[in-house]
Simulated scan of single mutants.
Amino acid sequence: MEQLLLHLRNLGFTEMESKIMVELATKGQASGYEVAKQLGVSRSNVYAALQRLTQQGYVRCGEGEPARYSVLDPEELAAMISGRVQASLAYMESEMPRGGPVSPSFYNVEGDRNVLGALVRQLNLARQEIVVDVWREEASLLRNELEQAERRGVRLLWAFDGGNAATAPYPAWPPLGGELPRSGGRKFSFVIDRCWCMLGMRYEDGTAQAVVTEHPVLVELLLNHFTQEMVLFELEEDMGAELTKRYGERYSRIYSKYVLHDQAEEEPEEPDERAAGQLRSEDAAD
Rank of each mutant, 00 (worst) to 15 (best):
P175R: 12
I81G: 03
P181M: 07
E267V: 14
L222Y: 01
G28F: 03
V46E: 00
E63H: 09
Q263A: 15
H261A: 12
E269T: 05
S44G: 10
P175A: 15
T207W: 06
E267D: 10
Y258C: 05
L180A: 14
F13W: 01
E2T: 04
S42I: 13
P104E: 05
A208R: 02
P175G: 13
H261W: 08
S88M: 13
C61R: 10
L53K: 00
V231A: 14
E17M: 08
R52D: 12
A168C: 09
F188H: 00
G28Q: 02
Y247E: 06
G163H: 01
G117R: 10
G184M: 02
V212N: 03
G57Q: 06
Q209I: 15
A118W: 00
G184P: 00
I254E: 04
N10R: 11
E63Q: 09
M198K: 00
A241C: 08
A172S: 14
E93F: 06
L39V: 05
D262W: 08
S18R: 02
Y170W: 13
G277Q: 04
G111I: 12
F226D: 04
Y33H: 09
E2C: 03
R143I: 13
R98W: 04
V154A: 03
M21R: 08
I81P: 02
C195S: 15
L116E: 06
V132E: 01
V59W: 00
G40P: 01
T227C: 12
G153I: 05
P171V: 06
F190Q: 01
P74R: 04
E265G: 11
L142G: 09
E75W: 05
Q51G: 08
S105L: 14
L223R: 10
E242P: 01
A172M: 15
E93N: 10
Q3N: 08
G64Y: 07
S256L: 11
T213S: 03
T54M: 09
E147D: 09
K37H: 12
A25Q: 12
Y247S: 07
T213P: 00
P171I: 03
H215A: 13
S105N: 11
K19W: 06
S44Y: 10
G200L: 01
Y47C: 03
A159W: 01
G184C: 05
S31D: 03
T227G: 09
E147Y: 05
Y170A: 13
Y69L: 03
